[in-house]
Amino acid sequence: MTSLLIHLRRFSVYRGLTDLYARSPLARLLIVSIVPLLWILGTTAAPLAQMVIVSFYESFPVAEGETARWTLANYASFFERPLYLTAFLRSFVFATVVTLLTLLVVFPIAYYIAKVAPRGRRTRLLLLVIAPFWVSEIIRSFAWIVMLANRGAVNSFLSFIGIPGTPVELLYNNVSLTIGVIYLTSLYMLLPLYAALEKIDDNVLEAAANLGAPGWRRFLRIVLPLSRDGVVAGCSLVFLLVIGLYAMPQLLGGPGNTLFATTIGQIFAKAGASWPQGSAFSIILTGAALAYVGLFVAIFQRRGRGGA
């Protein structure tokens, strides 16, 4: 391979090009930046711009030979029907609650792997909890259906040990959905938390213990502040994941508890006629979600600096 490249240097075109690359900052800039710029344009900037434009259309696609008519009605329709506003608010409450629950569930797990378990076993324990995440969202939803259905594993177990009143309705409500979604989100919480906790110096904890700080105090004054970055990153990731969930709420959630992402998805899954409305809703959701997470991150970072 190298000999081939050295061979190439005999050709003046190749030499000229590599020399130009080595000497001219402009050529370097052009070559280095062309792929990122095209990619950003083609996958992020243009599709989002297109979506913003479509959200102001009266109809899409615009009929042949006609010019597009502009309107604000798509945005207005969000506020007109309580159906949409409720789904929107429900999404934010649900995502916030699930994020906090995920944090509560995953923090001790991450702490155990990063700080308590024997050093030599950490990678293996981490792999053990990561392994189920190589399974798709749909398969994991199905696994929970098999668990929670009226004739599923849990109900079968409950009637086996003689609990009266079985089958208990476990599926198709917010509880079953939450159980399923935490199954989906815990990895995104685990990895940032683990990374942050692992960095905490054991000596600091030991020193605090020697100086007589009880366990809860070491946790509040040392572990929690030092793992703040991990908490903020994990919560942001999980929130954004939950707010965009489309499939699992349809498989595990109740019919009366539609989330906003599902509403948007269904607008698009049905027919092309209402795409402008779906676009407007997408922009509302994205803007609100990013603002919400941005605010959360800003508050925690400022507090961090003030406290330190």
Partner: peptide, 14 residues
Amino acid sequence: FLPVVVSAISLRIF
């Protein structure tokens, strides 16, 4: 960081 539904839909239109 975009909600996945939004990302997918914007590509669908595009």
